[in-house]
Simulated assay, not measured.
Amino acid sequence: MRAYFFDNLPGDQRLPHDSSRSVDAETLNKIKVEFWHIPVEGHEAKLDEIAKERGYRNRDVITVSKEGLGGEYEEKIKAFYKEHIHEDEEIRYILSGGGFFDVRQAPTDEWIRIAVSSGDLLVIPAGIYHRFTVDERNMSRTTRLFKDEPKWSAIYRGDESDTNPHRINYLKSIAVAA
């Protein structure tokens, strides 16, 4: 996993968009983004431990690729890349391939790009603005963890998301006035 500020230049979302301004673990910690690297071989025990510790009872595996999603591929990667929040934290473990999670740093509202690949586990807190895209390999096979039934429910950025209790609680948790 590698984190840096997004360059905000136009171009394919699947490109690195590296501003050459690195982001350290302390900065990610301040915005409540957590991460681990767990080798894929034998990862199940560690993933089970983290799921139990965080109260996650369900999981699934999603393959985001042209082959896996067929005609829905372009539509899906555009939907995942549209800025949004969730009411639950988002936990993703990359089995193969890779991609980029972009998270908004509060209060600056700058994008931080987190490059993930096989073995990376990322926890994105409820209420943080973020988005996802595959990288140039156009494939990410990912285990998703869920507290309840597997679902992906996004609240896209706007008035509804800005006043969402999970967004407000997130801002309070990082000591930013809502």
Rank of each mutant, 00 (worst) to 15 (best):
E49F: 04
R54K: 15
I94M: 07
L121S: 09
W111F: 08
R113S: 09
P39W: 02
I31G: 08
V33H: 03
E41P: 01
I50C: 12
P125H: 07
I85Q: 02
G119H: 14
D88C: 00
A115D: 15
R54T: 13
F101W: 14
E90L: 06
K78P: 06
I124G: 08
R54Y: 13
R57W: 15
E90V: 10
A45I: 03
E110Q: 09
V33K: 04
W111A: 04
A106I: 11
L69N: 13
A106Y: 11
P125C: 14
G97H: 01
E67T: 08
D48A: 10
A106S: 14
R92G: 06
K82T: 15
E75W: 11
V64T: 07
G119M: 12
I124T: 05
A115E: 15
I77G: 00
K30N: 13
I85L: 13
W36C: 10
R57C: 11
Y73D: 08
G68I: 06
E34L: 15
D48G: 01
T63D: 11
E87C: 11
Q105V: 11
F101M: 09
H43M: 07
H43Q: 14
V103C: 04
V40W: 12
I91H: 15
V103H: 11
V103W: 14
F35N: 01
I31E: 00
I38W: 06
R59S: 13
V116H: 02
I85H: 15
E90P: 08
D48Y: 01
R92D: 08
D120M: 12
I38Y: 02
W36S: 06
P125N: 12
V123S: 01
G119K: 10
K32S: 08
A115W: 11
T108E: 02
P107G: 04
L69W: 00
I85T: 10
P125I: 10
E75M: 15
A51G: 13
A115P: 06
D120W: 00
D109F: 07
W36Q: 11
Y81W: 10
D60H: 10
K66Q: 15
I85M: 08
